[in-house]
Design a protein around this nucleic acid. Structure first.
Lengths: 272, 272
DNA sequence: CACGCTATGTGCGCCAACGAACAAACGCGG
DNA sequence: CCGCGTTTGTTCGTTGGCGCACATAGCGTG
C-alpha cells in the first residue's frame, strides 16, 4: 500500500516502532546504538504469551517498547506471584548477563505490544565492553531488585485493596493510554490472590468512581483517587526507579533534542 | 602466644579468622586475592547491629565469614520482612557495584560473628577490571535475586509453620553448629509475623521433637524433620544457590588443596 | 539468693482472605 | 440478532494470622 493520503493510511505508513522507544536503548551513545541496531529484531508480544519459562535456556534479551511483561514466580502448587513488571524502562533476561543463563521465574506478556530482541551472545559481547550499556543494565538490575523487595514486603503486609491500587498505577505508568486491557483473572494471578478478591476490590474502586470497566478492560478515571488507596509501595518504587534511571532519562531527552524539529520539541515539553 | 601445647591454646594460637572463610573471597585467583588482601579489614559484627540503613551512603562492602546478616525491608508502619539472608557465601552491599550506591533495605546482623570489609572504591576498582571478582559478584547477585523471588512467593502463599522451617534450615546451613542464638522476637521480625505466631509454630516443632530451645537459643535436633515441615522454597533456594555458585566452591577447594599441609587437609576433610 | 528484666506461653475476639458453588451479564462469532 | 462461552458478581462457611492482654519462667545482676 504505497498510497499515503488519509490520516488512516498515514498511521500505517509511519509504523511507530523504533528501538529508542525503549528507555535503555534510547540512552545509549550513538556508537553503541549503531553497533546494536542491525541486530535488534522487532517482535510482537501477544497477551499471555510466555517470553521464557522457568529453567529454560534463554537465547535472547527483550527490550519492550509498547508491551508490558510480568515476571511471575510459580510455585509447585500452581499458585503464583508477580515479582516485578517490566515495560519500556527495562529489559527481560537479566540472567543472560548476570551469569546464570536461566532463572527460576517465568515472564508472561501482561499487555500486548512490541519489543526488540537481541541475541544473548551479542548482548554479552556488548556487556563485556566497558561501555554505557553495561552501566545501564546493572543500574536497571538494581532498580529491579528494589521493586522485588518492595513487592515482597507489600505481599506480606498490605491489603488486597492497596495492592490492587499499587498495581494499577504501576501498570498505568507504563502505558500511553489510561485503559488497561486485562481480565480480572489475570490481575488476580499477578497479585497472587483469588479472582473473587479482585472482583471485590475492583468493585470498591468502581463505586468510588476511580475506575470503570467492561469485560477485559479497565479504564482509570481518577488517578489521584487510586493513589489515595495505594500503599506507600507505589510511591517508593516509582521514586527509586526514577532515581536509579534518572541519567537514563536525561540522555534520552538529549537524544530527542538532537533531532531538533518543532514536533520533537513539543513532544518533550508535553512530558512535563 | 607462640606456645602450642594444649588443645585449648592450640585453638587460640590458630585464630580462625581469614578472608578465605568467605566463599567469594576464597574463590579468587591468587593474583586478585593478594591484590585485595592488604585492604581487607576484619570486623566484628554484633547481634542486632545494623550494617547499613535504608538510604544511607555505603562506604564498604562486607564479606561475612562467621556472621549472618539479614536483609530487612522495613515499611513505614514499622512492619518488616526479610528479603534474604547473607552468610559466608555472599557479600553485603551489592548496590556499590551495581551502581545505585544506596539501597532501600537495611542489613541487620542476625547471628553475631565476623566478616571482612573492603572500601567501596577499591571494590569498584577491582570490579572494573575484567577479573574473576566481577563474575563472582554478578553471579552472587543473581543468586540473591532468586532468593528474593522465592521469599516473595513464599510470603504470599505458605503458612508460618512452613516458613519457620524454611528459615531455620537456611540459617542452619550457614552455621557451623546446630544451635542458633536468636530470640523468637528476632525470628518474628525476620519472617515479618507476630512474635506469638513464632512461639506457637516453634512450640509445635519442639513437641514434634525437631528442635529444643531455651531463652534465646534454638537447637536443631532433627534436621530431616524440619525438612518435612518446610515448603518447597527451602530446597529450591538451596539448589539454585548451589547451581549458581558451584564453580565458586570448586575453586575454593582447589585453593585449599594448593596449600597442601597436613593441617589444611584435616581442615578440609572435617568439612564433610 | 532474691530481684527484675526480658523472653516465652496462652487465651481470647476479630477480620481479611480463602475455597467452592452458583447466578448474571457481556459481547463475539455465526 | 441470537446463542454460547467467557467474564464478572454474589453468597456462605472456614480459617490462618492479627492485636491485645496477661501469666509464667529463665537468667544475669547486684
Amino acid at each position: 500500500m504505497p498510497v499515503i493520503s488519509t490520516t488512516q493510511s498515514k498511521s500505517i505508513a509511519m509504523p511507530p516502532h523504533q528501538p529508542s522507544q525503549n528507555h535503555l536503548l534510547a540512552a545509549l551513545p550513538t556508537a553503541e546504538y549503531e553497533r546494536l541496531f542491525p541486530h535488534l529484531e522487532l517482535v510482537a508480544m501477544r497477551l499471555g504469551e510466555s517470553v521464557y519459562e522457568p529453567g529454560g535456556q534463554l537465547k535472547h534479551v527483550y527490550f519492550p517498547t509498547t508491551a508490558i511483561v510480568s515476571l511471575l514466580y510459580v510455585l509447585e502448587s500452581g499458585a503464583s506471584a508477580e515479582i516485578a513488571g517490566v515495560g519500556n524502562e527495562g529489559v527481560i533476561g537479566i540472567s543472560l548477563f548476570m551469569g546464570g543463563n536461566t532463572t527460576p521465574s517465568s515472564a508472561v506478556v501482561q499487555t500486548a505490544g512490541h519489543g526488540y530482541r537481541l541475541s544473548g551472545n551479542l548482548l554479552r559481547e556488548e556487556f563485556s565492553r566497558a561501555g554505557l550499556m553495561r552501566r545501564l543494565l546493572l543500574r536497571y538490575t538494581q532498580a529491579l531488585l528494589t521493586q522485588m523487595c518492595q513487592t515482597a514486603a507489600c505481599n506480606r503486609h498490605h491489603s488486597i485493596d492497596q495492592q490492587l491500587c499499587r498495581w494499577l498505577l504501576l501498570t498505568l505508568d507504563r502505558l500511553p493510554s489510561n485503559e488497561l486491557v486485562m481480565t480480572q483473572e489475570l490481575v488476580a494471578s499477578a497479585l497472587g490472590v483469588r479472582r473473587e478478591s479482585v472482583t471485590e476490590a475492583a468493585g470498591k474502586l468502581q463505586r468510588a468512581g476511580f475506575v470503570r470497566y467492561r469485560r477485559g478492560h479497565i479504564s482509570v478515571l481518577d488517578r489521584a483517587g487510586l493513589e489515595t488507596g495505594a500503599c506507600e509501595c507505589y510511591a517508593v518504587v516509582k521514586k527509586e526507579i526514577g532515581r536509579l534511571l534518572s541519567d537514563v532519562r536525561y540522555r534520552q531527552n538529549e537524544a530527542a533534542a538532537a533531532m531538533d524539529t518543532p514536533r520533537a520539541r513539543a513532544r518533550i515539553e508535553s512530558r512535563n
